[in-house]
């Protein structure tokens, strides 16, 4: 959800069933027109976060922008070197896409672990990113797959590396009048092995206490060629654990010092005490899931 403020008098008279207070554009073109002519828009994607925060109606929403009718934002396109996922693709669809399961198994697993069937039916990948919760389930997998996001406004388009997108808990680099259009994930030639771990009080409908995504590329001699690791719910933003990655690269399958990697991971995170666990607990669990993820990936 993103608000924008700009004093503009001209509003489009109608667009489908749009009124002056709410807009449901049917195309990117219509969306840009609305962005150009309107101030303070509250953007709704799947609504699974917005309706929670707006439940008590503590703040007034003047203008609504619902992205649900923009078919261009629901497209999934597969190219030779990348895959593009529209921001309005739901978690449910993500789970059902065979290509995602095959090419990005950790993203598939994380989408399956997210919320409940009801939430997965409505919630979107774009919403998960824009809400920018440190506990966003899709975020560690997207980080290890080197995802980029395409952001549009009425004037321009820009691409941002997801590693630099998040700036704090529920904060990101989106500016006034900007909308997340799609997610671009590069397709790499190397075969990789990945693991997704989510720790919480129960399996379904849980905001993670801590989560971890690990993706490793081995060369033909089983030496780690590339390693990407990210942890969620353990810092103000979902975090790439570069210190652990550096230790892993060049190690052979049977010589990985699990404890050293786990310690590096624990050192890089900065968790807080909250209802889902204390900082001390999170550091301890971070070490343990790092170890178990490594064991799983090298099995």
């Amino acid at each position: 959800m993103k608000k924008q403020s700009k004093d503009v008098k001209n509003r489009p008279t109608s667009s489908g069933r749009d009124s002056k207070e709410y807009f449901r554009p049917k195309s990117k073109k219509e969306l840009k027109e609305i962005l150009k002519n309107n101030d303070i828009l509250t953007i709704i994607a799947g609504g699974t976060d917005l309706l929670v925060s707006n439940y008590q109606k503590l703040y007034k929403i003047d203008k609504w922008l619902d992205l649900d009718l923009i078919d261009e934002f629901k497209e999934v396109k597969i190219f030779d070197d990348k895959i593009e996922i529209g921001s309005m693709v739901t978690h449910d669809r993500l789970v059902r896409l065979e290509k995602i399961k095959e090419l990005f198994p950790i993203l598939h697993s994380a989408a399956l672990d997210l919320g409940s069937p009801q939430i997965r039916s409505r919630g979107t990948i774009g919403g998960n990113i824009v809400t920018s919760s440190p506990a966003g389930d899709l975020l560690p997998p997207l980080l290890v797959y080197d995802a980029e996001v395409v952001i549009i406004s009425d004037q321009e388009e820009r691409k941002v590396d997801l590693n630099t997108f998040f700036t704090g808990p529920k904060k990101n680099v989106l500016k006034e009048g900007e909308i997340l259009e799609k997610i671009v994930i590069p397709l790499k030639k190397d075969k990789s092995r990945g693991v997704w771990k989510k720790v919480g009080k129960r399996k379904a409908l849980v905001i993670s206490s801590i989560s971890l995504a690990l993706n490793i590329v081995f060369d033909k001699d089983n030496i780690i060629k590339k390693a990407k690791m990210a942890i969620g719910s353990a810092a103000p933003v979902p975090l790439r654990i570069k210190s652990a990655e550096e230790i892993l690269i060049g190690q052979s399958l049977d010589s990985i010092d699990y404890i050293k990697v786990a310690k590096a991971a624990a050192k890089q995170i900065s968790p807080i005490d909250d209802i889902r666990g204390t900082a001390e607990y999170r550091i301890s669990v971070a070490k343990n899931i790092t170890k178990s993820a490594l064991k799983e990936v090298t099995k």
Binding site: T48, L51, V52, D68, Q118, I119, S121, R122
Partner: peptide, 24 residues
């Protein structure tokens, strides 16, 4: 959206009706 008591089938999918605006 945590308890599912308000679940309905919307266009073939189970959704929480507390998490959907009627205009949508």
């Amino acid at each position: 959206g945590e308890c599912g008591a308000c679940t309905v089938i919307l266009d073939g999918k189970a959704v929480n009706s507390c998490m959907v605006y009627t205009f949508q």
